[in-house]
Design a protein around this nucleic acid. Structure first.
Length: 593
DNA sequence: GTCGGCTAAGGAGGATGATA
DNA sequence: TATCATCCTCCTTAGCCGAC
């Protein structure tokens, strides 16, 4: 006997594809049973090939659809049809049919179903005349947008929106993941069922083949025997009774064999029914595969959406990164330089703390009286300084006090550490209190140490008294050329200053110099008076002028006294240096101190 | 060493257009 | 007509850097 060729299934009648076919119900129960019973059964390549051949035979056009998901097709149809009052279902259907081929047989049912789903989710709206528009809310928003000025989306809102998108994406990803897992399980079960179907089919085929061979052999034997007997009868010329009887017995003996053949035929018939049942199962499998293909396609779309959301998440990260990196170029440069120059800063420290000793002037009586109310302690003379353009410039709002001009150290070591330890782009500052020359106001101000770099690479330091300095300037008519004196004192360890005017400067020059800023030029162009202009002589009240004049007289008298004291001290120092009167000179110095 | 000018960032307030 | 949202212009502030 020749080796058995690869199993081939006999042609079976094509079944009509229908979701409610009774075979589907059978198939489902069959699947459940097979999934349990045949979990570890392998599928041979021959079986796989057989199933493929069968599937192709029955469903030559069964494959994964190429068109986008229905929601996308409907959206595109509504947008591109762009019909006044919306598009009707028929026109949408026609559009989709024209644009996309390879649509499922149940296209109209699918379309109805998805239109209903999109209406329910609010993505589209059905009008009274059963036309479909893109979402109502969206439409209203567009209308408002057209009328109003487009609102600028703030970064925070963008972030919120992106956060929301990320959350949605996470949920979508979870759903997709679950669907994938289900699909995988379903594929496994499907493969197992295929195995079982093939095995069953093979067994039936083998049995049929065997039966056919047996029947043919028996029939051949019988016909041969009959021929032999006829030849014998013809040769003897006459048939005797015992021979007839023998022939009759033989006939009788043959009868059960015929009965046997009938039974075999009956068995073959039942096997054909089994094959039919298996074919039905195959049919159901194909239907399921079509459903799975649709699911796959939907998942693909969801993955595309998820990828889009991921891109948005990336964009959000980029924005955050950008925000964290957003530093003023100048600040950035200064930061890097500050980092580089840290050792130099330390080297300069000795210079910074080097205070030039001098004889401090006495604090005017009105200031003494004023600070007595604060219960002040640690009163020290800080600086006597001529005011420069930037010191009174509205645009600078600061009083520069170079370290070299500082007469007495007024900061505690811990305060100095705070001010000099620059961490990041912000210059550290401490809050101080300043009593202005008029003694009418005291201002909360900020004290900083600024690092001034020269072209040679050397560093110098200045104290910067800022915040509210402009108010002190305007309240006390401070101007370029004026000489001011600053004393420091402590109130419950808080650093406070008191400012005194000594010599008046050229106010007109000062006012003129304050017009350096571009804004002032623009104001002049526009014919608007600048704030500083209002401070000019003609705008000032007489009382204020009188007060200023009195202050000037007082400070001038004070200066005369101070100058006399300085002269006496200088004379004493000269004696000291010459070694003529050491004891006398040192005694005077200590007295002044 | 010190002064004076420049510049970016951010805030205040006015102008504009749409909506209720 | 009042209110709201947005944009635009001008001003203030802080800090850096070059010139003297």
């Amino acid at each position: 006997m020749d080796p058995k060729p690869e199993a081939t299934a006999p042609p079976l009648p094509e079944l009509e594809m229908h979701h409610h076919h009774p075979a589907v119900a059978n198939f489902r129960s069959f699947v459940t049973e097979m999934a349990v019973a045949l979990a570890s059964k392998p599928l041979t390549p021959a079986h796989k090939s057989l199933v493929q051949k069968r599937l192709i035979h029955f469903f030559p056009d069964a494959h994964t659809p190429r068109h986008p998901v229905y929601a996308a097709m409907i959206h595109r149809a509504i947008i591109e049809l762009n019909e006044q009052g919306g598009s009707r279902e028929e026109s949408i259907s026609t559009f989709i049919q024209n644009e996309y081929h390879d649509l499922p047989r149940a296209h109209s049912s699918f379309l109805k179903h998805h239109l209903w789903k999109l209406c329910e989710s609010g993505e589209i709206t059905m009008t009274r005349d059963k036309s479909y528009l893109l979402g109502k809310r969206e439409e209203l928003k567009i209308k408002r947008k057209k009328l109003g000025r487009p609102r600028k989306i703030k970064e925070e809102e963008q972030m919120e929106s992106i956060d929301m998108d990320i959350r949605v994406t996470q949920v979508q990803n979870t759903v997709v993941e679950e669907q994938n897992q289900l699909t995988e399980k379903w594929d496994e079960v499907f493969a197992e069922i295929q195995d079982e179907v093939i095995v069953e089919h093979d067994q039936v085929e083998e049995q049929n083949e065997a039966n056919r061979e047996t029947n043919q052999a028996e029939l051949q034997n019988e016909s041969l025997e009959n021929e032999l007997q006829e030849q014998e009868n013809r040769a003897s010329g006459e048939m005797n009774t015992p021979q007839k009887q023998e022939a009759g017995v033989r006939q009788e003996q043959n009868q059960p064999e015929e009965g046997k053949n009938d039974a075999a035929k009956g068995q073959a018939l039942s096997e054909e029914q089994q094959i039919e049942a298996i074919e039905e199962k195959n049919q159901s499998l194909v239907q399921q595969s079509v459903v799975l293909s649709e699911q796959d396609q939907q998942q693909e779309q969801e993955i595309i959406v998820a990828l889009g959301q991921k891109q948005q998440a990336d964009q959000r990260n980029r924005i955050m990164e950008k925000q964290s990196q957003r530093v003023h170029p100048k600040r950035l440069r200064s930061d890097s330089q500050a980092e580089k120059d840290k050792p130099k800063k330390r080297i300069k420290k000795s210079l910074v703390t080097c205070i030039i000793p001098d004889l401090p002037p006495d604090m005017p009586l009105k200031f003494r009286e004023r600070i007595e109310g604060f219960n002040a302690s640690e009163v020290v003379f800080v600086i006597q300084k001529r005011l420069y353009k930037t010191d009174v410039s509205e645009g600078h709002n600061r009083l520069f006090m170079p370290f070299s001009q500082i007469k007495t150290e007024f900061l505690r070591p811990e305060e100095k550490t705070i001010l000099k330890n620059r961490n990041g782009k912000k210059i550290p500052e401490i809050e101080v209190l300043l009593i202005e020359p008029s003694c009418e106001h005291d201002w909360t101000m900020s004290l900083k140490i600024l690092e001034m770099r020269k072209a040679s690479g050397q560093l110098s330091y200045v104290y910067n008294l800022g915040t509210n300095w402009n108010k002190v300037v305007s309240n006390n008519s401070l101007c370029k050329g004026m000489i001011v004196q600053l004393w420091a004192f402590r109130v419950d360890s808080k650093l406070c200053f008191v400012l005194g005017k000594v010599v008046t400067g050229d106010e007109d020059d000062a006012i003129a110099d304050q017009s350096t800023s571009a804004s002032r030029k623009r104001r002049k162009k526009l014919g608007r008076p600048h704030k500083i202009d209002l401070m000019k002589e003609e705008h000032r009240p007489k009382e204020e002028k009188e007060i200023i004049d009195m202050e000037i007289q007082v400070t001038e008298e004070q200066n005369k006294v101070t100058e006399e004291q300085n002269m006496q001290t200088e004379i004493g120092t000269m004696y000291e240096n010459n070694g003529r009167s050491n004891s006398r000179a040192s005694g005077r110095g200590s007295h002044h101190r």
